[in-house]
Protein backbone atom coordinates (compact mmCIF):
# COMPACT_ATOMS: atom_id res chain seq x y z
CA UNK A 1 0.00 0.00 0.00
CA UNK A 2 2.68 2.46 0.99
CA UNK A 3 4.69 1.42 -2.04
CA UNK A 4 1.74 2.36 -4.18
CA UNK A 5 1.54 5.77 -2.58
CA UNK A 6 5.23 6.36 -3.22
CA UNK A 7 4.75 5.34 -6.82
CA UNK A 8 1.78 7.67 -7.20
CA UNK A 9 3.70 10.59 -5.72
CA UNK A 10 6.63 9.95 -8.07
CA UNK A 11 4.34 9.80 -11.07
CA UNK A 12 2.57 12.98 -10.15
CA UNK A 13 5.78 14.82 -9.29
CA UNK A 14 7.15 14.00 -12.69
CA UNK A 15 4.03 15.54 -14.19
CA UNK A 16 1.97 14.14 -17.00
CA UNK A 17 4.35 12.46 -19.29
CA UNK A 18 2.49 11.36 -22.32
CA UNK A 19 3.86 11.65 -25.82
CA UNK A 20 0.85 13.01 -27.69
CA UNK A 21 2.87 13.67 -30.81
CA UNK A 22 3.88 10.05 -30.99
CA UNK A 23 0.25 8.96 -30.71
CA UNK A 24 -0.74 11.31 -33.52
CA UNK A 25 2.07 9.98 -35.65
CA UNK A 26 1.36 6.28 -35.26
CA UNK A 27 -2.41 6.15 -34.91
CA UNK A 28 -3.09 5.55 -38.64
CA UNK A 29 -1.16 2.28 -38.33
CA UNK A 30 -3.27 1.34 -35.36
CA UNK A 31 -6.46 2.08 -37.28
CA UNK A 32 -5.21 -0.26 -39.97
CA UNK A 33 -4.52 -2.87 -37.31
CA UNK A 34 -8.00 -2.31 -35.89
CA UNK A 35 -9.44 -3.36 -39.22
CA UNK A 36 -7.55 -6.63 -38.93
CA UNK A 37 -9.04 -7.08 -35.45
CA UNK A 38 -12.48 -6.39 -36.88
CA UNK A 39 -11.94 -8.85 -39.69
CA UNK A 40 -10.76 -11.46 -37.21
CA UNK A 41 -13.79 -10.77 -35.01
CA UNK A 42 -16.30 -11.05 -37.83
CA UNK A 43 -14.88 -14.32 -39.16
CA UNK A 44 -14.53 -15.73 -35.66
CA UNK A 45 -18.14 -14.79 -34.88
CA UNK A 46 -19.38 -16.53 -38.02
CA UNK A 47 -17.38 -19.67 -37.25
CA UNK A 48 -18.34 -19.49 -33.58
CA UNK A 49 -22.06 -19.22 -34.34
CA UNK A 50 -21.79 -22.15 -36.73
CA UNK A 51 -19.96 -24.30 -34.20
CA UNK A 52 -22.40 -23.15 -31.52
CA UNK A 53 -25.45 -24.12 -33.58
CA UNK A 54 -23.97 -27.51 -34.43
CA UNK A 55 -22.84 -28.02 -30.84
CA UNK A 56 -26.25 -27.12 -29.44
CA UNK A 57 -27.97 -29.40 -31.95
CA UNK A 58 -25.63 -32.22 -30.93
CA UNK A 59 -26.12 -31.63 -27.22
CA UNK A 60 -29.91 -31.61 -27.60
CA UNK A 61 -29.98 -34.58 -29.96
CA UNK A 62 -31.77 -37.79 -29.11
CA UNK A 63 -28.71 -39.64 -30.40
CA UNK A 64 -26.40 -40.66 -27.53
CA UNK A 65 -23.26 -40.50 -29.67
CA UNK A 66 -24.00 -36.97 -30.88
CA UNK A 67 -24.81 -35.88 -27.34
CA UNK A 68 -21.50 -37.27 -26.14
CA UNK A 69 -19.59 -35.54 -28.94
CA UNK A 70 -21.26 -32.25 -28.04
CA UNK A 71 -20.46 -32.66 -24.35
CA UNK A 72 -16.80 -33.50 -25.04
CA UNK A 73 -16.48 -30.52 -27.38
CA UNK A 74 -17.81 -28.14 -24.77
CA UNK A 75 -15.78 -29.48 -21.89
CA UNK A 76 -12.50 -29.65 -23.83
CA UNK A 77 -12.71 -26.14 -25.29
CA UNK A 78 -14.09 -24.47 -22.20
CA UNK A 79 -11.79 -26.48 -19.97
CA UNK A 80 -8.46 -25.38 -21.45
CA UNK A 81 -6.99 -21.91 -22.05
CA UNK A 82 -7.74 -20.47 -25.47
CA UNK A 83 -4.07 -19.53 -25.72
CA UNK A 84 -3.03 -23.16 -25.37
CA UNK A 85 -5.57 -24.15 -28.02
CA UNK A 86 -4.09 -21.55 -30.37
CA UNK A 87 -0.54 -22.73 -29.65
CA UNK A 88 -1.46 -26.36 -30.26
CA UNK A 89 -3.10 -25.45 -33.56
CA UNK A 90 -0.45 -23.04 -34.83
CA UNK A 91 2.80 -24.41 -33.43
CA UNK A 92 1.75 -28.03 -32.95
CA UNK A 93 -0.32 -28.26 -36.13
CA UNK A 94 2.56 -28.71 -38.59
CA UNK A 95 3.72 -31.73 -36.59
CA UNK A 96 0.48 -33.52 -37.45
CA UNK A 97 0.23 -32.12 -40.95
CA UNK A 98 -1.87 -29.02 -40.33
CA UNK A 99 -0.16 -26.01 -41.86
CA UNK A 100 -2.06 -22.80 -41.40
CA UNK A 101 -0.93 -19.23 -41.69
CA UNK A 102 -1.22 -17.25 -38.50
CA UNK A 103 -4.43 -15.42 -39.44
CA UNK A 104 -6.30 -18.60 -40.42
CA UNK A 105 -5.06 -20.40 -37.33
CA UNK A 106 -6.28 -17.45 -35.28
CA UNK A 107 -9.76 -17.50 -36.80
CA UNK A 108 -10.11 -21.27 -36.52
CA UNK A 109 -8.65 -21.47 -33.03
CA UNK A 110 -10.75 -18.63 -31.62
CA UNK A 111 -13.88 -19.60 -33.56
CA UNK A 112 -13.91 -23.19 -32.37
CA UNK A 113 -13.14 -22.00 -28.85
CA UNK A 114 -15.95 -19.42 -28.66
CA UNK A 115 -18.23 -21.94 -30.38
CA UNK A 116 -18.06 -24.06 -27.24
CA UNK A 117 -19.37 -21.16 -25.17
CA UNK A 118 -21.99 -20.36 -27.80
CA UNK A 119 -23.10 -23.99 -27.75
CA UNK A 120 -24.03 -23.59 -24.12
CA UNK A 121 -25.65 -20.19 -24.72
CA UNK A 122 -27.85 -21.56 -27.48
CA UNK A 123 -28.66 -24.77 -25.65
CA UNK A 124 -29.60 -22.77 -22.57
CA UNK A 125 -31.94 -20.53 -24.54
CA UNK A 126 -33.59 -23.49 -26.26
CA UNK A 127 -34.23 -25.46 -23.09
CA UNK A 128 -35.50 -22.36 -21.31
CA UNK A 129 -38.49 -22.17 -23.68
CA UNK A 130 -41.45 -23.32 -21.62
CA UNK A 131 -42.15 -27.02 -22.00
CA UNK A 132 -45.82 -26.19 -22.45
CA UNK A 133 -44.97 -24.63 -25.81
CA UNK A 134 -43.65 -27.93 -27.11
CA UNK A 135 -46.59 -29.80 -25.63
CA UNK A 136 -49.09 -27.47 -27.27
CA UNK A 137 -47.44 -27.81 -30.67
CA UNK A 138 -47.07 -31.58 -30.38
CA UNK A 139 -50.69 -32.07 -29.36
CA UNK A 140 -51.72 -30.23 -32.52
CA UNK A 141 -49.89 -32.95 -34.43
CA UNK A 142 -46.70 -31.08 -35.29
CA UNK A 143 -43.53 -33.16 -35.49
CA UNK A 144 -40.49 -32.59 -33.31
CA UNK A 145 -38.70 -30.71 -36.06
CA UNK A 146 -41.73 -28.60 -37.03
CA UNK A 147 -42.19 -27.75 -33.35
CA UNK A 148 -38.53 -26.79 -33.00
CA UNK A 149 -38.53 -24.68 -36.14
CA UNK A 150 -41.85 -22.88 -35.78
CA UNK A 151 -42.41 -22.69 -32.05
CA UNK A 152 -39.27 -23.23 -29.96
CA UNK A 153 -36.49 -21.66 -32.05
CA UNK A 154 -38.28 -18.37 -32.79
CA UNK A 155 -38.67 -17.88 -29.04
CA UNK A 156 -35.20 -19.17 -28.15
CA UNK A 157 -33.48 -16.96 -30.73
CA UNK A 158 -34.90 -13.86 -29.12
CA UNK A 159 -33.67 -15.02 -25.75
CA UNK A 160 -30.16 -15.81 -26.96
CA UNK A 161 -29.37 -12.41 -28.52
CA UNK A 162 -28.05 -10.83 -25.33
CA UNK A 163 -26.06 -13.79 -24.03
CA UNK A 164 -24.57 -14.31 -27.50
CA UNK A 165 -23.66 -10.62 -27.36
CA UNK A 166 -21.71 -11.37 -24.19
CA UNK A 167 -19.90 -14.18 -26.03
CA UNK A 168 -19.11 -11.87 -28.93
CA UNK A 169 -17.83 -9.21 -26.56
CA UNK A 170 -15.49 -11.79 -25.00
CA UNK A 171 -14.45 -12.96 -28.44
CA UNK A 172 -13.49 -9.49 -29.66
CA UNK A 173 -11.26 -8.97 -26.65
CA UNK A 174 -10.04 -12.53 -27.05
CA UNK A 175 -8.66 -11.71 -30.50
CA UNK A 176 -5.78 -10.04 -28.63
CA UNK A 177 -4.49 -13.57 -27.99
CA UNK A 178 -3.55 -14.08 -31.63
CA UNK A 179 -0.80 -11.51 -31.15
CA UNK A 180 0.98 -14.43 -29.51
CA UNK A 181 1.03 -16.27 -32.84
CA UNK A 182 2.16 -13.11 -34.62
CA UNK A 183 -1.06 -12.01 -36.34
CA UNK A 184 -0.59 -8.30 -36.99
CA UNK A 185 -3.68 -6.98 -35.25
CA UNK A 186 -4.15 -4.29 -32.58
CA UNK A 187 -2.25 -5.90 -29.73
CA UNK A 188 0.61 -7.13 -31.89
CA UNK A 189 0.89 -3.70 -33.48
CA UNK A 190 1.11 -2.07 -30.06
CA UNK A 191 3.88 -4.47 -29.08
CA UNK A 192 5.73 -3.79 -32.29
CA UNK A 193 5.67 -0.02 -31.81
CA UNK A 194 6.72 -0.41 -28.20
CA UNK A 195 9.76 -2.26 -29.53
CA UNK A 196 10.85 0.77 -31.51
CA UNK A 197 9.56 3.64 -29.32
CA UNK A 198 9.78 2.26 -25.74
CA UNK A 199 6.45 3.90 -24.97
CA UNK A 200 4.22 1.09 -23.67
CA UNK A 201 1.77 3.43 -21.95
CA UNK A 202 0.85 5.33 -25.11
CA UNK A 203 0.84 2.30 -27.36
CA UNK A 204 -1.30 0.05 -25.15
CA UNK A 205 -3.60 2.96 -24.36
CA UNK A 206 -4.13 3.60 -28.04
CA UNK A 207 -4.92 -0.03 -28.79
CA UNK A 208 -7.16 -0.20 -25.72
CA UNK A 209 -9.18 2.80 -26.87
CA UNK A 210 -9.68 1.23 -30.28
CA UNK A 211 -10.86 -2.05 -28.71
CA UNK A 212 -13.34 -0.01 -26.70
CA UNK A 213 -14.69 1.71 -29.78
CA UNK A 214 -15.27 -1.63 -31.46
CA UNK A 215 -16.89 -3.11 -28.35
CA UNK A 216 -19.08 -0.04 -27.92
CA UNK A 217 -20.41 -0.18 -31.46
CA UNK A 218 -21.03 -3.93 -31.34
CA UNK A 219 -22.68 -3.61 -27.94
CA UNK A 220 -25.11 -1.06 -29.28
CA UNK A 221 -25.79 -3.24 -32.31
CA UNK A 222 -26.67 -6.12 -30.00
CA UNK A 223 -28.98 -3.96 -27.88
CA UNK A 224 -30.70 -2.70 -30.99
CA UNK A 225 -31.23 -6.26 -32.26
CA UNK A 226 -32.52 -7.32 -28.86
CA UNK A 227 -35.03 -4.48 -28.76
CA UNK A 228 -36.19 -5.18 -32.30
CA UNK A 229 -36.69 -8.86 -31.55
CA UNK A 230 -38.79 -8.29 -28.42
CA UNK A 231 -42.14 -9.98 -28.55
CA UNK A 232 -44.80 -7.30 -28.52
Amino acid sequence: MSALLVLARKTISKGPNMDIDLILRVYPFFIEAAWVTIELSVLTTILGLTCGALGAAARLSRNVVLRAIGAVYVSVFRGTPALIQLFILYFGGPQIGINLDAFDAGVIGLGVNIGAYMTETMRGAIISVNKGQTEAARTLGMSRWETMRKVVLPQAMRMMIRPLGVNINALIKGTALVAAISVVELTYTAQRYIGSTYKPFEMFLLSGVLYMVIIYIVGHGISWLDRKARIV
Binding site: N130, E135, A136, G141, M142, Q155
Partner: peptide, 20 residues
Protein backbone atom coordinates in the same frame (compact mmCIF):
# COMPACT_ATOMS: atom_id res chain seq x y z
CA UNK B 1 -48.56 -40.20 -33.17
CA UNK B 2 -48.42 -36.97 -35.19
CA UNK B 3 -51.28 -38.30 -37.25
CA UNK B 4 -53.56 -39.39 -34.43
CA UNK B 5 -52.89 -36.27 -32.38
CA UNK B 6 -54.52 -34.19 -35.10
CA UNK B 7 -57.78 -35.82 -34.06
CA UNK B 8 -57.37 -34.99 -30.40
CA UNK B 9 -57.60 -31.38 -29.29
CA UNK B 10 -56.07 -30.44 -25.98
CA UNK B 11 -56.50 -27.40 -23.78
CA UNK B 12 -54.01 -26.79 -20.99
CA UNK B 13 -54.23 -25.16 -17.60
CA UNK B 14 -51.66 -22.53 -18.60
CA UNK B 15 -53.01 -21.96 -22.14
CA UNK B 16 -49.61 -22.44 -23.82
CA UNK B 17 -50.37 -19.98 -26.59
CA UNK B 18 -47.40 -19.23 -28.82
CA UNK B 19 -46.28 -15.77 -27.63
CA UNK B 20 -44.37 -14.92 -30.82
Amino acid sequence: VNQVRQNIGMVFQHFNLFPH
